[in-house]
Deep mutational scan, measured.
Amino acid sequence: MDVFMKGLSKAKEGVVAAAEKTKQGVAEAAGKTKEGVLYVGSKTKEGVVHGVATVAEKTKEQVTNVGGAVVTGVTAVAQKTVEGAGSIAAATGFVKKDQLGKNEEGAPQEGILEDMPVDPDNEAYEMPSEEGYQDYEPEA
Rank of each mutant, 00 (worst) to 15 (best):
P108Y: 05
S9H: 04
Q62D: 03
E46M: 05
A29D: 00
M5N: 04
K60F: 05
L113I: 14
T72D: 12
G25A: 15
D121N: 13
K96Y: 14
G67S: 12
G93L: 04
D121Y: 15
K32M: 03
E83V: 00
A91N: 12
Q79D: 07
G25L: 11
V40F: 15
G84A: 03
A140M: 07
M1I: 00
K97Y: 14
L113G: 13
T92Q: 12
M5I: 00
E105S: 13
Y136A: 07
K32R: 07
T81H: 02
V55S: 01
G14Q: 10
S9D: 07
S42N: 15
E105V: 12
T75V: 12
G51I: 15
I88W: 06
E28A: 06
V52M: 01
V95G: 04
D115N: 13
A89Q: 03
G7Y: 09
T72M: 14
A11S: 00
M1S: 00
G106E: 11
N122L: 13
V66Y: 12
V63L: 13
G25F: 13
K97M: 01
G93T: 01
T81K: 05
L38M: 15
Y125A: 06
K21Q: 07
V40A: 07
D119A: 03
A85E: 06
V15A: 01
A76Y: 12
V48R: 02
A140K: 15
V15E: 00
A91S: 05
F4Y: 11
E104A: 06
G106H: 12
D121H: 14
E61N: 03
E123S: 08
T44H: 03
K80S: 01
F94N: 05
Y136C: 09
E83W: 04
K21D: 01
V63M: 02
L113P: 02
E104V: 03
Q99L: 02
L8N: 00
A27D: 03
K6G: 01
P120T: 04
P138N: 14
T64M: 14
V16S: 07
V37K: 01
P117Y: 06
G47V: 03
E110T: 09
T22F: 03
E123T: 12
G132H: 08
K21V: 06
A53M: 15
V70D: 05
Y125F: 11
V49I: 14
V82P: 05
Y133C: 12
T22N: 00
K43T: 08
A89T: 09
K23Y: 09
A11P: 00
E130G: 03
N65E: 11
V49H: 00
Y39M: 02
T75L: 14
K34G: 04
Y136W: 10
V118L: 13
T64G: 06
D135R: 04
D115V: 12
T75Y: 14
Q99N: 07
D2Q: 15
K23I: 02
T33F: 02
T22M: 14
I88D: 06
E110C: 12
Q109L: 10
G36S: 10
A124S: 13
V71N: 06
T75G: 09
K58G: 00
A89L: 13
E123Q: 07
P128A: 14
G106C: 09
E137V: 12
V66H: 05
M1E: 00
A89P: 07
V16P: 00
A76T: 14
M1T: 00
V37C: 09
T81I: 13
T81E: 03
E130H: 13
K45L: 15
A89M: 15
K43G: 02
V49W: 11
A85Q: 07
P117K: 06
N65P: 03
Q109R: 02
L38R: 14
G7A: 05
V95Y: 05
V95N: 15
G31I: 13
V40T: 02
E57H: 05
M5L: 02
K96Q: 13
A17L: 07
E137R: 11
E130V: 02
P108G: 08
Y125R: 04
V77A: 12
A19R: 03
A140W: 13
H50P: 05
K43M: 04
E123P: 01
N103W: 13
V118P: 05
S129C: 05
Y133R: 12
A78E: 02
M1C: 00
M5A: 02
Y133S: 04
E57Y: 02
G47M: 14
K6E: 03
T72K: 08
G41L: 06
E105K: 07
G101K: 11
T22Y: 12
P120W: 12
E83Q: 04
E137Q: 10
G101V: 05
